[in-house]
């Protein structure tokens, strides 16, 4: 269970990225965090695991306040927070297996990790995760040999290898085509459901957010302006978040995308 209370981030340049953000996330809930670029979505996610230091406010994960932890304690807390990145952020020149195992770094000593001598249970678990995300047999490939969708699957496996209590997902589909985006989001929501894992998915595609999350939080200029189920996200709410726009036209084109994908998968099934 994650609780964010009154979180504020002011950058040294004086820019206010977040202003009094509060919400809480029960176990197993997948939240879509939407808002225009520059609204502070990325900052909010990074304030939770303190890749960005919040200026004030509290972040409670299972009743531990992350904002007051010292370095070693913060490292221990980060082990339980999986993070998935926009540009995958895999270590490109390492193998897929090493990338997945890097999720275990917080649990093993430096020398063990340097010699690549991870415990057998970690290795077996990594193989199982690779199977789960659909990358069986790719353990020895180098990360930069994979396609975008495959890389993001490795990113998911790496985050799950941490055995996290929370997933932070930063624009997971920004570098992917629409079809792969859906596949990745479907995979994410499935693994969250399997493990009862809460997740914050920061996403700029409203339709995808509505389709794949149980709750939507809308940010505008660092403040929460919408918080509710996807079905409540009507044109008025969207206008509050993004400003004026032709929302029904956008929905229509997204629906066509989804339909085309469905049709294609039927055709593929017919061929097989």
């Amino acid at each position: 269970m994650l609780t964010v209370e009154n979180l504020t981030k002011t950058y040294r340049s004086g820019d206010k990225a977040l202003h009094g953000v509060s919400f809480s996330l029960p176990k197993g809930q997948v939240v879509g965090l939407i808002g225009p670029s520059g609204a502070g979505k990325s900052t909010l996610i990074r304030c939770v695991n303190r890749l960005v230091e919040p200026t004030s406010g509290r972040v409670l994960l299972n009743d531990i306040d992350l904002t007051t932890l010292n370095r070693p304690a913060l490292r221990r807390a980060r082990r339980r927070i999986g993070m998935i990145f926009q540009e995958y952020a895999l270590v490109e020149r390492l193998t897929v297996m090493e990338n997945v195992l890097s999720g275990r770094l917080g649990y093993v000593s430096f020398w063990r990790s340097w010699m690549r001598r991870f415990p057998g249970t970690d290795i077996a678990n990594a193989f199982r995760l690779l199977d789960r995300v659909g990358l069986e047999g790719r353990a020895d490939s180098r990360a930069d040999e994979l396609s975008g969708g495959q890389r993001q699957r490795v990113g998911i496996a790496r985050a799950l290898a941490q055995e996290p209590e929370l997933l932070l997902v930063d624009e997971p589909t920004a570098s992917l085509d629409p079809k792969t985006s859906r596949q990745i989001l479907r995979l994410l929501t499935e693994v969250c459901a399997e493990r009862g894992l809460p997740a914050i998915i920061n996403i700029h595609d409203v339709v995808l957010a509505q389709q794949f999350s149980q709750r939507i939080i809308g940010l505008r200029a660092g403040e929460v302006v919408f918080d509710g189920p996807p079905s409540d996200l009507d044109n008025a709410a969207l206008t509050r978040i993004y400003g004026e726009e032709d929302w029904s036209a956008m929905r229509k084109s997204a629906a066509e995308d989804a339909e085309a994908e469905l049709e294609q998968s039927h055709r593929m099934a017919g061929l097989a």
Binding site: N49, M83, V91, R93
Partner: peptide, 30 residues
């Protein structure tokens, strides 16, 4: 070196030595 790869290793709870070994060294080894 690419900052995002380093950030990803930091986010797993790795120690600073591990960040050097996993996030930075593979990028500069060639």
């Amino acid at each position: 070196t690419d900052v995002s790869q380093v950030e990803a290793i930091e986010a797993t709870g790795a120690s600073s030595r591990q960040v050097l070994a996993f996030g930075i060294w593979p990028q500069v080894a060639p």
